[in-house]
Design a protein around this nucleic acid. Structure first.
Lengths: 199, 199
DNA sequence: AATAAGATAGACAGGTCTGTATCATTTATT
DNA sequence: AATAAATGATACAGACCTGTCTATCTTATT
């Protein structure tokens, strides 16, 4: 008895899985260690053996979330033939994810808001992730032939973060449903030199 | 002695002012009642006479922040002759604010992230505010002659929230500096029918 | 089978949080 | 000046939080 699948997974993974759900849905300060321990079915000392402190757990969770995101991005863009279509594919995926009821916004943004200090481990992991996304979008913009890749990259980045914000703030059925359309429009505009002349 | 200006302001205002600074900079759960009381120089019972609970204070603060925002928006758009230029003026102002060192992102977004339940008073006030902004941007888009005002309004809304996110996540000198350029580009694209044809 | 390592269970310490109670003092009203 | 209302200072209760300690039990390794 008691040989439920959950008990066969090692404690560290069970903790990270439980923490992921709780942190994402409720935030970081709102979720206590006791609750994570109770819901993951792990002893307190086992927890502190794997994670010296709550901040360490948060940082580990964010790192795992970051890794997961890059895998997700890779699967999305894998079959797209060129940079422009890769960008458009990314924003179709963002649309699909944003309007899904399970989407509760961006957990990295939540980390930055709850831990304002840039040096805080949680903020640092979140910032590294966001820097990576911005760099990726900028690089794809450059490869797609944008006149000002940094500007287009910044614009797409803001659209993406705005979509996550909409999901959290408005709940299901929010205006992030239009992000793919807007992104496509923006890409088209920045790729046509006649539209990007200075004022 | 002790007649410093701060002591001449009524307790309720001192509390709201202190709470504004602390909540905006640190978040809501991270700031305790005791700290607000200490820094505003008010007795605990005076606090609880004006605000029955911490949640009431948070809601009152957010309502005041919302009022302040609409005043700010009014001053920005007052002298602009037409809807399109009003939109562009808004995003110039967003740029200026985002890149300022004192900008720590959007306090309403922080409220939505720390209080996920849509029914929570803090989230409710934040959501009402965001709905208002989205409606305003959509209305200006419509008046400016956008083919799909809801799409343009949604896009501008996401750009704005993305700019606030950038400010919080990256600190001073972030990619929100390009939001005015991007917004202008997007408006131009959506106002020219040949660019908004369906795929 | 013997030994070492990891996990469980629960009590516990020290701190912080929200909110209440008590009582003296200041300010405003009449 | 007398009275009512608002504020100040501080102690306190009860809950919760992070992290530690001890002692028992299960699982790997050799």
């Amino acid at each position: 008895m008691g040989n439920t699948p959950a008990n066969l997974i090692k404690p560290r993974e069970r903790i990270l899985e439980t923490a992921a759900n709780l942190f994402y849905a409720n935030g970081y300060r709102a979720v206590g260690i006791d609750r994570i321990i109770a819901e993951s079915g792990v002893a307190k000392m086992s927890f502190y053996r794997h994670f010296p402190s709550k901040d360490d757990l948060i940082a580990a969770y964010l790192q795992r979330a970051s890794d997961n995101f890059w895998v997700w991005l890779e699967t999305i863009t894998r079959d797209e033939p060129d940079p422009r279509q890769q960008l458009e594919a990314i924003f179709r995926a963002v649309t699909n994810r944003s309007i899904h009821p399970a989407c509760l916004g961006c957990t990295f943004m939540a980390a930055a808001l709850e831990f304002p200090a840039l040096e805080h481990p949680a903020h640092a992991v979140a910032l590294a992730y966001k820097r990576g996304v911005l760099a990726k979008l900028t690089e794809l913009s450059r490869l797609a032939g944008a006149r000002e890749p940094e500007v287009l990259g910044a614009g797409l980045m803001m659209l993406m973060d705005g979509a996550w914000s909409a999901a959290r703030m408005f709940g299901p059925g929010n205006h992030a449903q239009h992000v793919a359309t807007i992104a496509k429009l923006l890409i088209a505009a920045e790729l046509m030199p006649q539209n990007s002349k200075k004022s």
